[in-house]
Protein backbone atom coordinates (compact mmCIF):
# COMPACT_ATOMS: atom_id res chain seq x y z
CA UNK A 1 0.00 0.00 0.00
CA UNK A 2 2.81 2.30 0.91
CA UNK A 3 4.51 1.56 -2.44
CA UNK A 4 1.30 2.42 -4.33
CA UNK A 5 1.04 5.84 -2.61
CA UNK A 6 4.66 6.64 -3.42
CA UNK A 7 4.17 5.72 -7.09
CA UNK A 8 1.07 7.93 -7.41
CA UNK A 9 2.87 10.85 -5.74
CA UNK A 10 5.84 10.43 -8.05
CA UNK A 11 3.67 10.45 -11.17
CA UNK A 12 1.89 13.55 -9.93
CA UNK A 13 5.20 15.44 -9.52
CA UNK A 14 6.62 14.63 -13.00
CA UNK A 15 4.86 17.51 -14.85
CA UNK A 16 5.96 20.04 -12.22
CA UNK A 17 9.57 18.85 -12.45
CA UNK A 18 9.50 19.12 -16.24
CA UNK A 19 8.13 22.67 -16.04
CA UNK A 20 10.83 23.68 -13.57
CA UNK A 21 13.53 22.22 -15.82
CA UNK A 22 12.17 24.11 -18.87
CA UNK A 23 12.11 27.37 -16.94
CA UNK A 24 15.67 26.90 -15.73
CA UNK A 25 16.93 26.03 -19.21
CA UNK A 26 15.29 29.10 -20.70
CA UNK A 27 16.91 31.32 -18.11
CA UNK A 28 20.35 29.90 -18.85
CA UNK A 29 19.85 30.33 -22.60
CA UNK A 30 18.72 33.90 -22.04
CA UNK A 31 21.78 34.61 -19.93
CA UNK A 32 24.08 33.17 -22.63
CA UNK A 33 22.56 35.41 -25.26
CA UNK A 34 23.48 38.46 -23.16
CA UNK A 35 27.05 37.36 -22.41
CA UNK A 36 28.04 36.40 -25.97
CA UNK A 37 26.15 38.55 -28.42
CA UNK A 38 26.25 37.75 -32.10
CA UNK A 39 28.83 39.92 -33.94
CA UNK A 40 27.28 42.80 -35.81
CA UNK A 41 28.01 42.06 -39.46
CA UNK A 42 27.15 45.59 -40.55
CA UNK A 43 30.17 47.37 -39.05
CA UNK A 44 32.82 44.70 -39.34
CA UNK A 45 34.39 45.69 -42.69
CA UNK A 46 35.49 48.96 -44.26
CA UNK A 47 37.23 50.13 -47.38
CA UNK A 48 38.96 53.44 -47.86
CA UNK A 49 41.20 55.62 -49.95
CA UNK A 50 43.66 58.27 -48.80
CA UNK A 51 45.54 60.89 -50.82
CA UNK A 52 48.49 62.84 -49.51
CA UNK A 53 52.20 63.42 -49.73
CA UNK A 54 55.16 61.16 -49.06
CA UNK A 55 58.52 62.62 -48.18
CA UNK A 56 61.49 60.53 -49.22
CA UNK A 57 65.02 61.49 -50.19
CA UNK A 58 68.14 59.60 -51.14
CA UNK A 59 66.94 56.20 -52.32
CA UNK A 60 63.47 56.57 -50.73
CA UNK A 61 60.73 57.70 -53.13
CA UNK A 62 58.59 60.71 -52.32
CA UNK A 63 55.78 62.58 -54.01
CA UNK A 64 52.04 62.23 -54.37
CA UNK A 65 50.83 59.33 -52.21
CA UNK A 66 47.69 57.33 -52.95
CA UNK A 67 46.62 54.64 -50.53
CA UNK A 68 43.80 52.09 -50.80
CA UNK A 69 42.84 49.85 -47.90
CA UNK A 70 40.48 47.21 -46.60
CA UNK A 71 39.79 46.87 -42.87
CA UNK A 72 38.30 43.97 -40.98
CA UNK A 73 37.17 44.37 -37.39
CA UNK A 74 38.65 41.83 -35.02
CA UNK A 75 37.34 43.33 -31.79
CA UNK A 76 35.80 46.54 -30.51
CA UNK A 77 39.14 48.37 -30.75
CA UNK A 78 41.35 46.37 -33.10
CA UNK A 79 41.11 46.16 -36.87
CA UNK A 80 43.15 44.21 -39.39
CA UNK A 81 44.37 46.23 -42.37
CA UNK A 82 45.34 45.22 -45.89
CA UNK A 83 46.40 47.96 -48.26
CA UNK A 84 48.12 49.08 -51.42
CA UNK A 85 50.13 52.27 -51.54
CA UNK A 86 51.59 54.19 -54.46
CA UNK A 87 54.03 57.10 -54.41
CA UNK A 88 54.44 59.15 -57.56
CA UNK A 89 57.36 61.56 -57.69
CA UNK A 90 59.68 63.11 -60.21
CA UNK A 91 61.58 60.85 -62.58
CA UNK A 92 64.55 63.17 -63.05
CA UNK A 93 68.03 61.63 -63.10
CA UNK A 94 70.03 62.47 -59.99
CA UNK A 95 72.60 59.69 -59.65
CA UNK A 96 76.23 60.26 -60.60
CA UNK A 97 79.61 58.62 -60.13
CA UNK A 98 82.04 60.52 -57.97
CA UNK A 99 85.76 60.60 -58.69
CA UNK A 100 86.21 57.28 -56.87
CA UNK A 101 83.62 55.73 -59.22
CA UNK A 102 81.14 55.30 -56.36
CA UNK A 103 77.52 55.82 -57.32
CA UNK A 104 75.80 58.64 -55.46
CA UNK A 105 72.05 59.17 -55.66
CA UNK A 106 71.06 62.40 -53.91
CA UNK A 107 67.41 62.33 -54.88
CA UNK A 108 65.25 65.11 -53.57
CA UNK A 109 62.38 64.63 -51.14
CA UNK A 110 59.86 64.23 -53.97
CA UNK A 111 61.63 61.92 -56.45
CA UNK A 112 60.90 58.38 -57.51
CA UNK A 113 58.06 55.90 -57.66
CA UNK A 114 57.00 53.09 -55.36
CA UNK A 115 54.25 50.51 -55.17
CA UNK A 116 53.68 48.79 -51.86
CA UNK A 117 51.46 46.09 -50.41
CA UNK A 118 50.92 46.27 -46.65
CA UNK A 119 49.33 44.31 -43.83
CA UNK A 120 48.86 45.78 -40.39
CA UNK A 121 46.79 46.43 -37.32
CA UNK A 122 44.84 49.49 -36.28
CA UNK A 123 43.79 50.15 -32.70
CA UNK A 124 41.16 52.73 -31.80
CA UNK A 125 41.19 54.72 -28.61
CA UNK A 126 38.41 56.42 -26.76
CA UNK A 127 37.33 59.58 -28.52
CA UNK A 128 34.87 62.37 -28.17
CA UNK A 129 31.57 62.38 -29.99
CA UNK A 130 32.20 61.39 -33.59
CA UNK A 131 36.02 61.72 -33.32
CA UNK A 132 38.10 58.61 -32.66
CA UNK A 133 41.92 58.61 -32.65
CA UNK A 134 43.85 55.51 -33.57
CA UNK A 135 47.34 54.11 -33.89
CA UNK A 136 48.48 51.70 -36.53
CA UNK A 137 51.49 49.58 -37.45
CA UNK A 138 52.22 47.42 -40.44
CA UNK A 139 54.69 45.58 -42.61
CA UNK A 140 55.06 46.19 -46.33
CA UNK A 141 56.66 44.86 -49.47
CA UNK A 142 57.71 47.84 -51.57
CA UNK A 143 58.94 48.07 -55.13
CA UNK A 144 61.11 51.13 -55.78
CA UNK A 145 61.95 52.83 -59.04
CA UNK A 146 63.85 55.96 -60.07
CA UNK A 147 63.21 55.92 -63.77
CA UNK A 148 65.63 58.70 -64.75
CA UNK A 149 68.49 56.78 -63.21
CA UNK A 150 67.29 53.31 -64.25
CA UNK A 151 67.55 52.44 -60.57
CA UNK A 152 65.21 49.83 -59.12
CA UNK A 153 64.92 47.92 -55.87
CA UNK A 154 62.81 46.15 -53.29
CA UNK A 155 62.23 47.20 -49.70
CA UNK A 156 60.67 45.61 -46.61
CA UNK A 157 59.57 48.59 -44.55
CA UNK A 158 57.85 48.64 -41.19
CA UNK A 159 55.40 51.48 -40.81
CA UNK A 160 53.89 53.06 -37.75
CA UNK A 161 51.65 56.03 -37.32
CA UNK A 162 48.39 57.37 -36.17
CA UNK A 163 45.36 59.27 -37.19
CA UNK A 164 41.88 60.29 -36.40
CA UNK A 165 38.60 59.31 -37.95
CA UNK A 166 35.43 61.32 -37.96
CA UNK A 167 31.94 59.95 -38.54
CA UNK A 168 30.45 62.40 -41.00
CA UNK A 169 27.46 60.47 -42.27
CA UNK A 170 25.85 57.09 -42.19
CA UNK A 171 28.61 54.60 -43.11
CA UNK A 172 30.97 57.40 -44.19
CA UNK A 173 34.12 58.27 -42.24
CA UNK A 174 36.70 60.96 -42.92
CA UNK A 175 40.24 59.99 -41.96
CA UNK A 176 43.49 61.94 -41.50
CA UNK A 177 46.66 59.97 -40.92
CA UNK A 178 50.46 60.24 -40.67
CA UNK A 179 52.95 57.40 -40.94
CA UNK A 180 56.67 56.85 -40.58
CA UNK A 181 58.21 54.12 -42.68
CA UNK A 182 61.60 52.49 -42.38
CA UNK A 183 63.38 49.32 -43.35
CA UNK A 184 66.05 47.80 -45.54
CA UNK A 185 66.02 48.13 -49.31
CA UNK A 186 68.03 46.22 -51.89
CA UNK A 187 68.90 48.38 -54.88
CA UNK A 188 70.49 47.77 -58.23
CA UNK A 189 73.42 49.47 -60.01
CA UNK A 190 75.74 48.30 -57.27
CA UNK A 191 74.15 50.32 -54.48
CA UNK A 192 73.33 47.18 -52.48
CA UNK A 193 71.43 47.43 -49.21
CA UNK A 194 70.36 50.91 -48.14
CA UNK A 195 67.91 52.33 -45.67
CA UNK A 196 64.45 53.05 -47.00
CA UNK A 197 62.89 55.78 -44.88
CA UNK A 198 59.98 58.11 -45.34
CA UNK A 199 57.17 60.10 -43.85
CA UNK A 200 53.69 60.26 -45.31
CA UNK A 201 50.64 62.29 -44.44
CA UNK A 202 47.25 62.04 -45.99
CA UNK A 203 43.53 62.37 -45.68
CA UNK A 204 40.70 60.45 -47.21
CA UNK A 205 37.45 58.68 -46.74
CA UNK A 206 36.46 55.24 -45.51
CA UNK A 207 33.18 53.47 -46.06
CA UNK A 208 31.53 50.90 -43.84
CA UNK A 209 30.45 47.91 -45.89
CA UNK A 210 26.97 46.37 -45.77
Amino acid sequence: MLRLVALIAGLALVPQLAQAQDALGGAVASQESIVTPEPDPVDSQEIGVLVGAAIGGGVSPGGLAVDGRYLYRMSDHDWFEVGANFVLGSGDAKCFRDRQSDLNCPHSLLDGFSAEATVGLRRYFAGQQQFRPYARAGLGLRLLSFSGDELRGVALPLSAGGGIRVDVANRVLVVAEANLRGGPAILGRGLGVRANLGLSIGAGVEFTLE
Binding site: G58, S60, K94, F96, D98, R99, S101, A195, N196, L197
Partner: peptide, 27 residues
Protein backbone atom coordinates in the same frame (compact mmCIF):
# COMPACT_ATOMS: atom_id res chain seq x y z
CA UNK B 1 72.91 61.30 -44.37
CA UNK B 2 73.98 57.72 -45.04
CA UNK B 3 71.09 56.44 -42.94
CA UNK B 4 68.79 58.23 -45.35
CA UNK B 5 70.68 56.87 -48.33
CA UNK B 6 72.03 60.27 -49.21
CA UNK B 7 75.45 61.05 -50.53
CA UNK B 8 78.24 61.95 -48.17
CA UNK B 9 80.97 62.50 -50.70
CA UNK B 10 83.85 64.63 -49.48
CA UNK B 11 84.26 66.39 -52.79
CA UNK B 12 81.84 68.80 -54.38
CA UNK B 13 81.34 66.84 -57.56
CA UNK B 14 77.87 66.57 -59.03
CA UNK B 15 76.08 65.78 -62.26
CA UNK B 16 76.63 69.38 -63.34
CA UNK B 17 80.35 69.53 -62.57
CA UNK B 18 82.97 66.97 -61.70
CA UNK B 19 81.24 63.60 -61.84
CA UNK B 20 82.83 60.81 -63.85
CA UNK B 21 81.02 60.07 -67.07
CA UNK B 22 80.94 57.90 -70.15
CA UNK B 23 78.11 59.66 -71.94
CA UNK B 24 75.85 62.69 -71.68
CA UNK B 25 73.30 60.56 -69.79
CA UNK B 26 75.67 60.52 -66.82
CA UNK B 27 75.57 64.33 -66.56
Amino acid sequence: LLAFGLSCSSSDVSRSLGAQCESRDDC
